[in-house]
């Protein structure tokens, strides 16, 4: 009697397992990548109002189409005011990421690392603790030369570590949200 009952259960279980449901898997929701940074615009303005634009954008994010970079030659022995803007242009209208950085200015710092070219960069802004942010800078070009300008944005750097407030990245730590290297031509 009990054996028959158990065999009955077995058949039910077997039938159930053969009739395993096969409805479709749910589609993933398309995520709104609010944190995505697609574009960097670094604009240098000389004293006579001439503008020099350095841009880097990758509108479809990582992968897909290759990113696009534009640069401009800089005049020798000049001083510039510079400002940087980060955008998420995958959104329409584009989202201004720089605003988010201004809101959390104590957690962010831009670093400008020059190699080869005769160009010096100094910070022209500060957060509530008196440490630099690097959205606004002053730049000075020297004699004719070529090289690179690397722009790095660090999230949660140690701003109080040695040299960091002077723009030296070595002790900063943190995560790089931006790292772009522009070729520089001073003529």
């Amino acid at each position: 009697m009990q054996n028959k009952f158990i065999l009955g259960i077995t058949w039910v279980v077997l039938l159930l397992s053969l009739a395993a449901c096969s409805d479709d898997v749910d589609d993933p929701e398309i995520e709104n990548e609010e944190e995505l940074i697609t574009s960097l615009y670094l604009t240098l303005t000389d004293q006579s109002g001439g503008a020099y634009a350095f841009t880097f954008y990758d509108l479809d994010g990582d992968g897909g189409d290759a990113p696009v970079m534009t640069t401009a030659p800089l005049p020798a022995n000049s001083t510039f005011t510079a400002s940087i803007e980060l955008l998420n242009e995958a959104e329409d209208p584009a989202e201004v990421i720089t605003e988010e950085i201004e809101e959390e200015d104590d957690e962010h710092q831009f670093f400008y690392i020059v190699s080869g070219a005769n160009l010096t960069v100094s910070y022209d802004d500060e957060d509530d603790n008196g440490n630099p942010i690097g959205i606004k800078t002053n730049m000075t070009s020297g004699d004719v030369s070529t090289g690179t300008l690397q722009v790095i944005l660090r999230h949660e750097p140690a701003k109080d570590a040695a040299g960091v407030s002077d723009g030296q990245i070595a002790n900063a730590g943190g995560e790089s949200d931006i790292e772009v290297s522009f070729p520089i031509v001073i003529q």
């Binding site: 898997v25 749910d26 589609d27 993933p28 929701e29 995520e31 609010e34 944190e35």
Partner: peptide
């Protein structure tokens, strides 16, 4: 028999590393 259903809960703001999937194995 194994049936496995994997879903990405939305709201991460990041494209999922692993897709949604359903695996059935006998």
């Amino acid at each position: 028999n194994a049936h496995r259903d994997n879903t990405n809960n939305p709201g991460t703001g990041i494209i999922p590393l692993i897709p949604n999937y359903r695996m059935i194995q006998t």
